[in-house]
Structures are given as structure tokens and as C-alpha cells.
Design a binder for these strands. Structure first.
Lengths: 217, 217
DNA sequence: CATTGCTTTTTTGAATGCATAATTTGTTAT
DNA sequence: ATAACAAATTATGCATTCAAAAAAGCAATG
């Protein structure tokens, strides 16, 4: 991974295609129309095809010999497997973040946390989920392990399409909020082991509570 | 990830470049000579450049705007971080493999294990390390989690260059062998928790025993 | 002798072109 | 009307070409 941030054409094209897939503009299972996208983006096929190679590696599309690219479907199994790995990576992040989190990172996470609580109290689920997402990523970043961060972000992006389709049930939501409070407390105490445990439990609950049937394509 | 196995030109080119990097034919930090490699491989620049995009994503090279690709250096920190993540993924694999390993997989792992022991007794370190590698991969595969397998293999490939440079010290080697025996026993007992713990400990020891200074580039 | 500025060469990024494979369309026979 | 086959169309994979950027070479100046 270790993507160097740079404004290459193929990079921008990849980003736009990712967005289109996430937003449903490109339907899973359907073929990626090279020519049409080229016209839409105003680029030639070369950078577009380079982008498809990267997207294939990221899991967004599948390349079929002499048949171009198809938008890959997220099956129930893949979603489950992805969350299984992410759960583990988050737990590791927690363990590491306990030792390594900086003061400014901690402050930032606390701030996000309080914003999230506010949305919870207002019952604003969309905003809540967005903040929730940001907190989890911030904890992973606090692990200070570049490889871990890259892998996590990649996996997260793979399931981006379905992340927000699952609604939080009325009995799970308060539980999740409590877990988040535990997280922040563990982080404040720089207790990596406790943080790892909370995170592990947290995502596990999320997977169990989510209706994977609804998410799969 | 979820790479579809297919014999595309760019895929073959990527594989050859990976090998060249692993074997040191392409020096870390040096630029990747597109023209020269094209002539050597007998392909045009299009598939070669597509391969470079994938390799960049895999972490083998870095793309610099208008300056092509450079073979990425494996720093001490990156190696450490990679092993840190791999250790966690192996532990997860162990936990999952305890429940999911099939009889034939178990048999295969036992076979590899005994072969490895034979090489240990003969003091044949190269062969030992190869088998060791295969056993670890087999355990990860036994997790039956495609995403986990892909991520693990990718990370493993990233550090392939340095994997075999570190020699096992005379006091670590017997310890590692004992841990491997524990692994097989845990797997036979289908005790995922125990297997996860052994694996976690095992790679941790390996990292601590290895002289990262020697491995870094 | 090192340094600056200019010219030439090489390399890169992306568009275009071309041969082949796949798909669609059209036609005919049943 | 439908099935089977053939022709036409389209899409794909890779090679080639072209413009722009970077690197190398080289002379003039201090």
C-alpha cells in the first residue's frame, strides 16, 4: 500500500470510480464501461485502465481476461470476513495506541467523542455514524503504525458501500455509546489492553447486530 | 485485493519485477528503468506501467510525479510495523483455524511440520525456513477468511526481501521449534485460543530475536 | 576550478492506433 | 416465431506516438 499522495491522473480517476461505486452509480456485477467513463472524465483510456488495475487490487472491481472490468459484488461472506479482520486490527490499534497516543490526538478524539454524543442525544444517526467512523480511524492512526493504518483504511474503503446502509437498532445504539465512553476512558488512562478489549467487543457487537443480509449485494 | 488469477501481461510483468526486487536485481532507492525493463521483458511500456501501478499499491515501489517509479526501501520501522500487523493476523488466523481447519489441511500442516523438524535436526536452516514459511501460510489459509488470507499474503510479500536474511540464533532456534510443536498440538486439539496465543508469542519472539538493523536497507 | 545558465537528450505521462477477442445484430431455415 | 448461424459492430489489450517534464551535457562566467 503506502500510497504516495500525488495528483496523478490515474489516481484521480480511481478516486472518482470509487465514489461512483460507493454511491451506487456503478452497479455491482455490471461491467465498467471504459469508453463512456473516458468521455465522462475527459481522459483517454490509458489512465483509466491504469486506475482499473489499482481498483482491482483494492477489491472494487474484478478483471476478467478480454472482458474488461466488472464492479465486484460484496457478498455476505466478504463483508463478514472484512469486519472480522478490521475488528482485529482495531484491537491491535487500541493496544498500541494506549502507549503511543499523543496528547493532541487524545484531545482530538475526545472532541470527536463529545460531538458524537451530541448527535446521539438528538437522535441524528447519520451524523452519529460519521463521527463514529472518524473516531475509529483516529484510534487506528494513534497506533503510529503506518502499515496498520494503510491496511485498515483499505479494508474500510472496501466496505464503504455498505457501512451506512445498516441502521442501528434501538437497543444496540445505547450499548454502542456506552462502549465508546469506555474507549475514551481507556485511552485517557493510556490503558492499551483495556482499549483493545473494548474495541474488539465493540466491532463484534456491531457485526452481530447488523443484518448482513441487508448489506450484501 | 481479491486478485483474480489470470495471465495478463501486466500481471506477469509485475511478478517478474517483484522477483527482481526480492532478489536484489533492482536496488532499493534506485529508479525503475522503464525502457530497459521493457526491452528485457519484450513488452511495451503500457503493460509495464500498469504493473508499476499495482506494485506501488503493494508497496514494492513508490511513484513520484514525473519521475517514474523508485524501488521502495524497507526501513527498520516499516519492517517492525509489518511484523507487528502480521503477528496479529496470525493470532487471529489461529483463533479461527481452531474452529475451521479441515482434516486434510491439518494433515498437510502436520506433514510440513515433520519435514521441517527433519531439516532442523540436520541443521539445514534454509530448508527449515522455507517449510516454516509454508506452515505459517497454511495456518492462515486454514482460517478460511479470504480477506485475511489476502492481506497476510500481501504483507508477507512486502517483507519477502528481508525474511531470509536474518539468521536464527542458536538459542532461538530450539525455542522456535518448541513453539511449532505447541502449534501443531493446539491445532490437533482444535484449540483456537491456544493456537492464537502460541502464534502471537512465536512471531513476537522472532521479531525480538531478529536483528532489524541487519534487515533494513 | 566551481557555478550558473542554456541547449540537447532522455524519460515520463497520456492519447492514439491497431490487431484480436467478444458481443451484438441481422439473416436464414425450420 | 424461434433457433442457429454468420456478419457487423464494439470492446479489449497492447504497441506506438506525441507533448511535456526532468536530467544530462556543455559552454561561459566569476
Amino acid at each position: 500500500m503506502e500510497k504516495i499522495k500525488q495528483n496523478t491522473l490515474h489516481g484521480e480517476v480511481a478516486e472518482r470510480i470509487r465514489d461512483m461505486i460507493s454511491q451506487g452509480a456503478l452497479v455491482p456485477g455490471s461491467r465498467v464501461p471504459e469508453k463512456q467513463l473516458c468521455e465522462q472524465f475527459g481522459v483517454s483510456r490509458t489512465p483509466l485502465r491504469e486506475a482499473l488495475k489499482v481498483l482491482a487490487y483494492e477489491g472494487f472491481v474484478e478483471l476478467l481476461p478480454n472482458r474488461g472490468a466488472r464492479v465486484s459484488k460484496l457478498t455476505k461472506a466478504t463483508i463478514k470476513n472484512t469486519f472480522e479482520v478490521m475488528q482485529n486490527l482495531e484491537a491491535l490499534s487500541g493496544k498500541l495506541a494506549g502507549d503511543r497516543v499523543t496528547d493532541s490526538e487524545l484531545k482530538n478524539i475526545e472532541s470527536l467523542h463529545y460531538q458524537m454524543l451530541a448527535h446521539y442525544k438528538k437522535g441524528n444517526m447519520q451524523e452519529y455514524l460519521l463521527l463514529n467512523q472518524q473516531i475509529h480511524e483516529a484510534i487506528v492512526v494513534a497506533s503510529q503504525n503506518d502499515v496498520l493504518i494503510d491496511v485498515y483504511k483499505n479494508l474500510n474503503q472496501r466496505v464503504r458501500r455498505v457501512r451506512f446502509t445498516a441502521e442501528l437498532s434501538s437497543d444496540y445504539w445505547p450499548k454502542a455509546v456506552q462502549e465508546h465512553k469506555d474507549m475514551v476512558n481507556a485511552l485517557r488512562a493510556r490503558d492499551g489492553v483495556a482499549l483493545g478489549e473494548v474495541l474488539s467487543r465493540h466491532l463484534k457487537n456491531k457485526v452481530e447486530m447488523s443484518n448482513l443480509e441487508d448489506m450484501a449485494e
